[in-house]
Simulated assay, not measured.
Amino acid sequence: MDIIWIVLAIVLLIVAATFFLFRIEDLSHLDDRDYPVRKSTPSEGHQQVLGQLRELREAAKDLKGKARLMALRQHMDTLSEGMELVSEFRHNEDPRGEWVIAPGVDTRRRVLYIHGGAWAAGSPRSHRTITDRFSRIANAAVFAVDYRLMPEYRFMDGVRDCQRAYSWLLDHGPEGRERASFVVVAGDSAGGSHTLSLLAWARDNGLRQADAAVALAPSTDLTLTAPSNRNNIPTDPLLGPVFGGLAKIPLPIIWWGTLAAFRVSPTNPVASPLRGSLANLPPTLIHASDTEMLLDNARRYAAKAQSEGSVVELHTWPGMVHVWHIFGDMLPEAEEAFEDIREFLADVEAGKSE
Rank of each mutant, 00 (worst) to 15 (best):
I10R: 01
P318A: 05
L149V: 04
A212L: 10
V184N: 10
M70E: 11
A215Y: 06
G309M: 09
A350T: 00
T131P: 13
H127R: 01
S126G: 12
D347V: 13
V111Q: 07
T291Y: 14
A121Q: 05
G191H: 06
N139R: 15
G51L: 01
V323R: 07
I326G: 03
W317D: 11
S272G: 07
F20D: 02
E335G: 12
H322W: 07
L251Y: 08
R300N: 00
R133E: 11
W324F: 14
M293Q: 04
V100N: 11
T78M: 03
P174T: 06
L112D: 12
T129D: 04
Q163A: 01
Q306M: 13
E152W: 12
W201Y: 09
W324N: 05
S189A: 11
V37E: 08
S289C: 07
F327G: 02
D347G: 13
T78E: 01
D157T: 08
S219I: 15
H75I: 02
A120S: 14
P283S: 14
R128F: 13
D221P: 02
R57D: 13
G309K: 04
M76H: 10
N280P: 14
V145Y: 09
Y153L: 01
G240H: 02
L112V: 11
A261V: 15
S40V: 03
A102E: 07
G351Q: 11
R73L: 06
A271N: 10
M320L: 15
A200M: 06
P218T: 03
S87V: 06
H287K: 11
D290W: 02
P266M: 04
N231C: 04
W119E: 05
R125K: 13
F182S: 11
M293W: 00
V11P: 00
E98R: 14
M156L: 09
T235A: 09
P124F: 15
A120I: 14
A120K: 13
L198A: 13
D132Q: 10
V15Y: 10
L30F: 12
V15R: 07
V145P: 10
W119T: 05
H91P: 08
F338I: 03
D161A: 04
S219L: 13
G319Y: 06
R164M: 09
R177T: 10
L281S: 06
H46A: 09
W255F: 05
F243I: 01
L295M: 08
V145D: 10
A118F: 12
G191C: 04
S228R: 07
R154W: 07
A200K: 11
S126E: 07
S277N: 12
I249Y: 00
L21M: 09
A271T: 08
W5N: 07
D146K: 07
F182I: 05
K304A: 09
R108G: 15
L21R: 12
R208A: 12
S43I: 06
E55N: 03
E55T: 02
T267S: 15
W255N: 05
H287S: 13
I6L: 15
K304L: 14
I341W: 10
W317T: 08
V7N: 01
V7H: 01
A60F: 03
I254V: 15
